[in-house]
Computed example of a mutant assay.
Amino acid sequence: MSKLYSGDIVAGLRCLIGQTVSIYTTSGGCSGSGFTGVLVYVDDCVVKLITRIGTPPSCSLGTACCPPGPAPYRGYGCEPFVGLGSVTIIPVDRIAAFVQNAIG
């Protein structure tokens, strides 16, 4: 990929930080199907997408809304934080195409 072409992709993606995009790569397998997420970082080498948002805590006040005691005896909504989410890092030189929302 030429430097000019790579720079055009980077410039285009920088304008989309904070928006949901789909990025298709030149790789095969599952990664060749593309990645969709919120674009959070772009530089000349890589882009980062949040592809899965982590789950929030079940109670914003910590354990204050859950009665004390072992798990089977606590009420509904006292589950611990279980989902950390995921971030996908894609090398710029492997980007084949990206898709953005038509309304912006």
Rank of each mutant, 00 (worst) to 15 (best):
Cys30Pro: 06
Cys59Tyr: 10
Ala71Glu: 15
Ser27His: 13
Glu79Lys: 09
Thr51Pro: 01
Gly29Ala: 13
Pro70Thr: 10
Pro67Gly: 02
Gly18Tyr: 05
Val87Ser: 05
Gly34Ala: 15
Ser58Pro: 05
Ile89Lys: 03
Thr88Phe: 03
Tyr41Ser: 02
Leu84Lys: 09
Val46Arg: 01
Val47Glu: 01
Ser22Arg: 15
Thr20His: 06
Ser22Gly: 10
Gly34His: 04
Thr63Phe: 10
Tyr76His: 11
Tyr41Thr: 00
Ser31Asp: 10
Ser22Asn: 11
Gly54Ile: 06
Ser58His: 11
Pro67His: 06
Ile23Tyr: 01
Pro80Val: 09
Pro67Lys: 05
Arg14Leu: 10
Lys48Trp: 02
Thr51Asn: 06
Gly75Thr: 14
Thr20Ala: 07
Gly34Ser: 14
Tyr73Met: 14
Gly28Gln: 13
Thr88Ala: 12
Gly69Arg: 05
Ser33Tyr: 08
Tyr24Pro: 00
Gly29Thr: 07
Tyr73His: 12
Cys78Ile: 03
Leu49Asp: 02
Val42Phe: 04
Phe35Lys: 08
Val87Ile: 15
Ser27Tyr: 12
Gly85Leu: 06
Thr25Ala: 14
Ser22Ile: 09
Val42Arg: 00
Tyr76Met: 11
Pro56Asp: 15
Cys45Phe: 13
Gly54Ala: 09
Thr20Lys: 05
Cys66Thr: 08
Cys78Ala: 02
Gly85Phe: 00
Gly62Ile: 08
Thr51Arg: 01
Cys78Met: 04
Ile17Val: 10
Ser31Glu: 06
Val47Thr: 10
Thr51Leu: 04
Ala64Met: 15
Gly12Leu: 07
Thr55Trp: 09
Leu84Glu: 11
Cys59Lys: 08
Val82Asp: 10
Thr25Ser: 13
Val40Asp: 04
Leu13Asn: 02
Gly77Ile: 07
Thr63Ser: 14
Ile50Trp: 02
Ser60Pro: 08
Asp43Cys: 07
Leu16Pro: 00
Leu61Thr: 11
Gly54Thr: 03
Pro70Glu: 08
Pro68Gln: 06
Pro56Trp: 09
Gly54Ser: 12
Thr25Tyr: 08
Leu16Arg: 07
Leu39Met: 07
Val38Cys: 05
Gly77Met: 03
Gly77Tyr: 05
Ser33Lys: 15
Ile17Met: 05
Tyr24Asp: 05
Ser58Phe: 07
Gly77Phe: 05
Ala71Tyr: 13
Gly62Trp: 08
Asp43Ser: 06
Cys65Glu: 12
Arg14Thr: 11
Tyr73Ala: 13
Val46Glu: 03
Cys15Trp: 11
Cys65Gly: 08
